[in-house]
Structures are given as C-alpha cells and as structure tokens.
Nucleic acid binder design. Structure first.
Lengths: 233, 233
DNA sequence: GAGGATTTATGATTTTTGTCATTGATATTA
DNA sequence: TAATATCAATGACAAAAATCATAAATCCTC
C-alpha cells in the first residue's frame, strides 16, 4: 500500500490517520480539517453503529474490531452486503445522494470507531482530487462486490452460495484459514438462506472434508474444493 | 429538471447535448471538449452496445430508443440490473476503478447512441464539480436500485418479484400503463426466475385482474393491487 | 454452578420453484 | 406462401429450499 507522505501526528486518535492508506494522500491542512471534525466512539459487540434510514452525518472508520454492513429488507429479514475491512471509510451510497443511510452497520466485535463529519469529509473530497479518486476506487470496488453478490445469490444453489461466502470471509474479514465471530444466523443473512439450511450445508461440507468447525469457528481444510463448489454450485 | 444555462448548439448530434439535464452544467469549452470526443453510432434491436469484460473506453448516451444493462452470471444466465432512461450517462462501476465494463448493455429497441471518450469525460468530471456531483447522484441512484433489487430478489416470492418488476418497468422504461418491448425471457432475467414461471405468474395476475396482455404488451389494470402483491410477496 | 436465554442441530413435512417434454402461436425470410 | 426459426403456453414431474416442531448444546448472569 501507499507510503505516507507526511508524518501527521494525530493527537487524540491512536490509529486511523496513521494507518489508513487513503489519508496519506492528504496534506497537513486537510488532515487538520478532518481531525477537527472527528470524534471517537466505542461500540460493544452487537451494537448498531449507524442505522438504515437515519441521516448520514458522519463517515465511520473502524480502527479496531470489525462490523457488518447489511440492508434491512421487508418482513424484518436482513441481508449482509459486506464485512468491513480495517480503515474502510464507511459511508455508503448516501454520501453523494441524499445524505441518508441506505444500509446499517453493526459491530461484530467490540470496536473503536472514528466518526468524521460528512461536510468536512466532502469538502476534502472536493479539494483533493487524488483523495477523491482513491475514495471512488474503494467505493466502486464495494459496489462491484454487490453486483457479484446479486449474481451469486440469484443464480447459485445453496452449496455454491455457502462456498462463495466462506471464501469471501476468509479472504476478507478474518484471519488465516479460520473464520471467527460469524454466527449461523449471520451466514444465513450473507447467503440468503435460512439458518437451518446453513447448518445442513455446513454439515455436508464437514462430511466432504472441506471445513471443520471448532468452537463455532470455521476452519478451511480444502480451499481448492471450496472453490470447485463455488464454481459449479 | 434543471434549466439550461447555455444554448449550446451541437452541430452533429441532434439530441444529447441539448436534452440531457446534466450537460446544462457545463460551459462552452467543456461542451466543446466533449463534442470533439464524441461519435454517433446506431444500433439495431438486440445488438450489444458494450459487453462485460471489455475495456471501458466510452460513456454511452442513448438519445433514441432504450437498452438493458445486465450482468452475465455463471452458466450463461443473465440478470438485468436496469433499463436505461433517456439521456442516462451509461458507464457503470468501472469508470472510477479499472476502466472495464462489469455489465453489458444491449439495445432493446433500435437506438441512436452517442459515444463520448472516457478520458475527455473524466477530465470534465475533474474540472467541473457541479457536474461531478450531478453525475454521482445519478450513479448513486442506480447503485441504490441495485441494493433494493438484491433485497427484493433474495427475500420475496415470485409474485412479489414480478409485481415489483412490473411497477419498476412502468415507472421507468416505458410509456403510461403499458409495458412494451419486454419479452418473457427479459422478465425472467429481471426477476431471477425461469421463463416458464414468468408465464405462470403473469397468468395468475391476469386472472386476478391486475394486468392484461395485448399483443405481448403488458397493460396495468390495478396498480394498487400490484403494489399490494409487491409489498406482501 | 444452577437456571434461563440464546444458539445450534436434526428430522418430518410442505411449499416453492425449476426442469423436461410437448404443443401452439407468431415472426421472419427465402 | 411455405419453411423455419423463435417465442409463448401448458402440464407432469422432480428438485430445491423453507417451515415447523423439538431436542441438544452453549452461553450468560446471578
């Protein structure tokens, strides 16, 4: 990732300005502006960080822990769009549109979050074109992932969807070969099936030696095999 | 919609600069730059205007006719994301990312299209912040629609999905209360079901007096009823 | 560590939706 | 206008996945 152009010392925030690659594109005064528009908030596992439908007043960066971005569909069923990556700038589609949240963000683990006022953020986007470009790349990648999800969830069977999701979680959210902090209900909301079906499919995967489950964590035993299932499913 | 600030006279292109609201935000020299980077191309019904996977070299505006934006999923099955509206700037998610098409655009009717070179387009985006903002609003609205589709297609039954799609097509693509130029196969790719199921669901809707079908066009007879089905489905 | 809540697991059953085979209708074009 | 595609419609059947009921395991809290 990009080297930092400046050694901005963030007084109150331990992490986010020093580590987020995007912020390396900003100059001292831009960083100052964001720093002045910044608040730190801690969240406990399971707490809602922002909620679909509410006004979008801040960009949220999680510098410890991680969260899930989900949409609340009809009849109270949720659909998980993405898990956050470290230092993601979580705003969503409303940033450029109506300044409303069109998805919700929930803390999956305890989280330390950094809230940056949206107006300050947008004014930096406006003043610094490299930063805008970099932000747009991030945003577009997440949109592309949603396109892919749409295709996967509507065209693959349960086994294929589950394999895709396990591979996504492995690449993405959690550590090497072990998926932690993701409940069966979460898997259901990620794969668009019921939790009973999640359990049944995971059982198949265990029997086939693709995964093992140790203390509710999923260990990947046969990544190639999962890729096959994802491909043909 | 926005009034036009300038009466730019486009020599070769009959429509797009004069009618697209977004272009009213540009000054003479910006319009000149786009005009010089512009080509007109005609397409016949069923022809592919751009194809998923190919390099994204131009923004496409359809000033007569309309098209469908779809993703090509696994096993050759397609999924229609949106139908174009007049004067949409069709680029997609690749504009800000990797300059590749991540969806395909096909002419649903005969189309007159205007191709604008992506570099000229991006340089105008960079130079004119109001234009960028307006483009981002358009783009975000389409992304939001994809989010909503994701929720609808994974959580509603066939009847609900079909009702949502009919209402979308009615609001969107085609004329007052009559949906034209959309085949059963297209409906299948819009609702993520098979064409046989499309036919069965439409038959139900006919029996229930929600729609009638005249010469392959769908007439909406009971919009409230369709909204009910969409809501509860 | 006991009790209650939540999550996980499993089997039986029903519903939903897709597949296959066939026929009829509508266009397109030689 | 006949020939040949392509598209629409229908029914029988199969498969996929959800629902329901119930039990077991795990996690919290007192």
């Amino acid at each position: 990732m990009a080297e930092f152009k400046n050694n901005y010392k963030c007084l109150e925030c331990k992490h986010c300005f020093k580590k987020s690659p995007l912020f390396s594109l900003l100059n001292k005064s831009e960083l100052d502006n964001l720093n002045n528009a910044r608040t730190e908030v801690n969240f406990k596992k399971g707490e809602i960080i922002y909620k679909q439908g509410t006004p979008l007043t801040h960009i949220v960066i999680l510098h410890t822990g991680f969260g899930k971005v989900y949409i609340e569909g009809s009849k109270g069923r949720n659909l998980i769009l993405t898990y956050t990556k470290k230092y993601d700038l979580n705003g969503g589609v409303g940033v450029f549109m109506d300044l409303r949240h069109h998805s919700s963000l929930m803390a999956v683990t305890d989280c330390e979050a950094c809230f940056i006022e949206i107006n300050a953020f947008k004014s930096v986007l406006r003043s610094n074109h490299d930063f805008l470009d970099a932000y747009m790349v991030e945003f577009s990648e997440r949109v592309l992932h949603t396109y892919q999800q749409l295709s996967i969830l509507t065209q693959k069977n349960m086994e294929g969807r589950m394999a895709e999701s396990i591979l996504y979680l492995n690449d993405h959210a959690i550590s090497n070969g072990t998926i932690k902090n993701v409940s069966k209900q979460d898997l259901a909301e990620l794969t668009a099936m019921t939790k009973e079906s999640v359990i049944r499919v995971l059982k198949e995967f265990k029997i086939d030696g693709l995964i093992e489950i140790v203390e509710q964590n999923i260990n990947i035993l046969d990544k190639k095999g999962l890729e096959q299932v994802a491909y043909y499913g």
